[in-house]
């Protein structure tokens, strides 16, 4: 599939790249990082304009983000006040809103370029929990700008055998995403351990 993706990209140029990035950021698992590396390599060899490539890429990625955000918001707004799974999700989302207004922006920003595998899920979650649209868009565009710049620069700098380079980076970003998840779970575990210890501490005091 990678081969067809690259042929599509190089045959139809920057609009094709933007389309692929939009689809990928919406959550369809296609190798978007490889597409960006390819753009960088093409630019390095003079087969594409660097600045134009960056702009098209940011536009495409942002389109995908917005689609995910709107999908989340649309689904929940239509389900609020109704029973069942979606209604429950909507109530939970309402409850999570204060926390999200505080942390949502950094989650959006970091998942654009550092923990990229989490990006599509965070788009939809941001829409569901009602993160304000200007904040989502601002941090989204900034994060995508950083992501696009990093990967296009890497493609530009190395310029050859980008498929293997993409393998390295893909595995690294999955590892980072897993470490982030592990940190979150570890924090929850620590809280749980403290709760258990406090309980058993009270118990043993009671026995004495």
């Amino acid at each position: 599939m990678t081969v067809y993706l690259l042929e599509f990209l190089t045959s139809y140029g920057l609009p094709a790249a933007a389309l692929l990035l939009a689809i990928g950021q919406f959550g369809v698992p296609i190798p978007t990082s490889l597409a960006l590396l390819t753009l960088g390599a093409l630019a390095a060899n003079g087969d594409a304009e660097l600045a134009t490539a960056v702009l098209w890429a940011i536009a495409g990625a942002t389109l995908g983000d917005q689609a995910g955000f709107l999908a989340g918001r649309f689904v929940i707004l239509s389900a609020e006040g109704r029973p069942g799974f979606l209604g429950g999700l909507a109530r939970k989302a309402r409850a999570a809103e204060p926390k999200l207004q505080k942390w949502g922006a950094s989650g959006v920003f970091l998942s654009r370029w550092l923990f990229t595998p989490l990006g599509p899920a965070i788009n939809i979650a941001s829409g569901i929990t009602g993160l304000s649209w200007p904040r989502f868009t601002l941090w989204g565009v900034l994060g995508e700008g950083l992501w696009v710049s990093i990967y296009i620069s890497l493609g530009y700098a190395f310029g050859s055998n980008i498929e293997t380079l993409s393998g390295i980076l893909g595995n690294l970003s999955m590892a980072l995403a897993m470490l982030a998840l592990a940190a979150f779970l570890g924090w929850r575990l620590k809280l749980a351990v403290q709760a258990v210890q406090a309980r058993s501490g009270r118990k043993s005091e009671g026995r004495q």
Binding site: E7, T10, N45, G159, S160
Partner: peptide, 16 residues
């Protein structure tokens, strides 16, 4: 470093 040639590659990409 020599990447197997594929259909998506451009002339200058292969040369590089």
């Amino acid at each position: 470093r020599d990447e197997p040639i594929e259909g998506w590659m451009t002339v200058r990409y292969i040369a590089r």
